[in-house]
Amino acid sequence: MRRREFITLAVGAASSWLPLLSVHAEDRVIKIVVLGDSFTAGSGISAGYRFTDQLEIALRAKGQSAAVINAGVGGDTAARGLARLSRSVPDDTDAVILELGANDMIRGIDPSVTRTALSEILRNLEARRIVVLLCGVRTRTTFGDEYKSAFAAMFSGLASEYNVLFYPAFDEAFVDDAQLKLLDGLHPNAAGVKAIVTGILPEVEALIDRARRKER
Rank of each mutant, 00 (worst) to 15 (best):
M1W: 07
R2T: 13
R3W: 13
R3C: 01
R4Q: 09
E5S: 13
I7Y: 05
T8R: 15
T8Y: 09
L9Q: 09
V11M: 14
V11L: 15
A14D: 00
S16D: 01
W17S: 12
P19W: 06
S22H: 05
S22Q: 10
D27Q: 13
K31A: 07
I32T: 12
I32A: 08
V34G: 03
A41Q: 14
S43N: 09
S43Q: 14
A47S: 15
A47M: 07
G48L: 10
R50G: 05
F51Q: 03
D53F: 06
Q54M: 14
L55D: 05
E56T: 11
A61G: 14
K62N: 13
Q64W: 09
S65E: 13
A66C: 09
I69A: 04
V73L: 12
G74T: 11
G75H: 10
T77M: 07
T77H: 10
A78V: 02
A78Y: 08
R80G: 14
G81P: 15
A83N: 12
R84Y: 03
L85F: 11
R87Q: 13
R87E: 15
D91W: 00
D92G: 09
D92N: 15
L98W: 09
E99D: 01
L100K: 07
L100W: 05
G101W: 02
A102E: 02
A102R: 07
D104Q: 08
I106N: 05
R107T: 07
G108A: 06
I109D: 03
D110T: 05
V113C: 00
R115L: 04
T116M: 06
A117H: 05
A117T: 00
S119I: 00
E120R: 12
E120Q: 09
I121W: 03
I121C: 06
R123I: 01
R123F: 05
R123V: 01
N124K: 04
N124Q: 04
L125V: 12
R128C: 04
V132C: 10
G136H: 11
T139K: 03
F143I: 01
G144D: 10
D145L: 06
E146W: 00
E146P: 00
Y147N: 07
K148P: 00
K148C: 06
K148H: 10
S149R: 11
A150E: 15
A150I: 05
M154D: 15
M154L: 15
E161P: 01
N163F: 02
N163T: 08
N163H: 08
V164W: 07
V164F: 09
L165M: 04
L165A: 04
P168W: 03
A169L: 01
D171W: 03
A173N: 05
L182Q: 15
L182Y: 06
L182K: 14
L183T: 14
L186S: 08
N189V: 06
N189H: 06
G192I: 06
G192E: 13
G192C: 09
V193I: 15
I200A: 06
E203Q: 12
A206P: 00
L207C: 08
R210E: 14
R210N: 12
A211N: 03
R213P: 00
K214I: 09
R216T: 11
R216L: 14
